[in-house]
Amino acid sequence: MATWFITGASRGLGAQIARAALAAGNDVVAAVRDPDRLPDDLKGSDRVLPLALDVTRAQDIPGAVQTAVERFGGIDVLVNNAGRGLLGAVEEITDAEARSLFDLNVFALIDMTRAVLPVMRRQGSGKIVNIGSRSGFEGEPGVGLYSASKFAVAGLSEALSKELAPFGIQCMVVEPGVLRTDFLDATSLSLAGTRIADYDGTPAHVTLDWAQTANHTQLGDPVKAAALIYEVTVQDELPTHLYLGPDTLDRLQVKLAQIEKDLAPWRAKSAATAHDTAAA
């Protein structure tokens, strides 16, 4: 039995991960902004600790971690799941909108991780599961700022996996495709406050129009996704990236092909920018 600390656990993928961990006999700390919105099946278990926590309030995080440790004795798995989307061409996104997005998707994740790491280092073990996105390895039109935030999550996760290995702590970033959750609801997804007509009919607004019609028809099954995340997390060794979903796998192949296309014509000249050691 392990203790899972899951942010954004009231619905969607976070709630399904909590259910998977609970069903397997683990203790779950369900960190949510409003514990009253936690599903009844999670609220009703004595192995679930509902915690009121807005992860963007950095000053509240250490107390939440301490409460979890006092209740269950430690934290074995941290799932940084809380996050939201932002749609719009990069030019349409205001500074305030971009900073608000990064406060939740990136800086809150950093704050949560820093608060839990002393616990895991004392234990000599632990696993950190960061929920990224397919948009975290491929910048996509119409979600440029969201992609930027998830690229940050992927980079942080890769660095953490190496920094924390000496302490027996592992880190993995999960990069799912579109899941049939509430992610495209207004409660999870923001639209740029400005719409520039010049982008109508271009890829940025095609994505925007798709998101407004695709809600709750997405390809991915969050129950199956959560089951796989749980299965992978309980293995002895975590992958650095968990590429999750058929659309993620398809886009990964596109990304790899693009890397090779960009690299091939300039590989030799790129290599030739080194100092000529023979001449020196």
Rank of each mutant, 00 (worst) to 15 (best):
G14A: 03
A15K: 04
A15C: 09
A15E: 08
A15T: 12
Q16M: 08
Q16H: 13
Q16W: 01
I17S: 03
A18M: 10
A20H: 00
A20M: 01
L22K: 04
L22W: 02
A23G: 10
A24L: 03
A24Q: 02
G25L: 13
N26H: 15
V28T: 14
V28S: 04
V29E: 03
A30N: 09
A30E: 12
A31N: 05
V32N: 02
R33E: 06
D34A: 11
D34C: 11
P35A: 09
R37V: 10
L38C: 12
L38A: 14
L38I: 15
D40S: 11
D41F: 06
D41P: 03
D41V: 12
D41R: 10
L42M: 05
L42N: 03
K43F: 06
G44Q: 11
D46L: 11
D46R: 15
D46A: 15
D46S: 15
D46W: 13
R47T: 09
R47N: 12
V48D: 07
L49D: 04
L49S: 09
L53N: 05
D54P: 09
V55E: 03
V55P: 00
A58F: 07
A58P: 00
A58K: 13
Q59E: 12
Q59N: 06
D60R: 13
I61F: 03
P62N: 06
G63Q: 13
A64R: 09
A64P: 09
V65T: 04
Q66A: 11
T67L: 14
A68Y: 05
V69A: 10
E70F: 07
E70C: 03
R71D: 00
R71I: 05
G73Q: 12
G74D: 06
G74M: 05
D76V: 09
D76K: 12
D76L: 12
D76I: 07
V77P: 00
N80R: 14
N81D: 11
A82M: 09
G83I: 14
R84M: 07
R84W: 01
R84H: 05
L86M: 14
G88E: 10
A89V: 05
A89K: 01
V90K: 05
E91S: 04
E91H: 01
T94Y: 02
T94L: 06
T94K: 11
D95H: 11
D95E: 15
E97W: 02
A98D: 05
R99A: 10
S100T: 14
S100M: 10
S100P: 02
S100Q: 12
F102V: 13
F102G: 10
F102I: 10
D103Q: 15
V106H: 02
F107Y: 13
A108E: 03
L109G: 01
L109I: 08
I110F: 09
D111A: 15
M112V: 09
T113S: 06
R114A: 08
A115N: 04
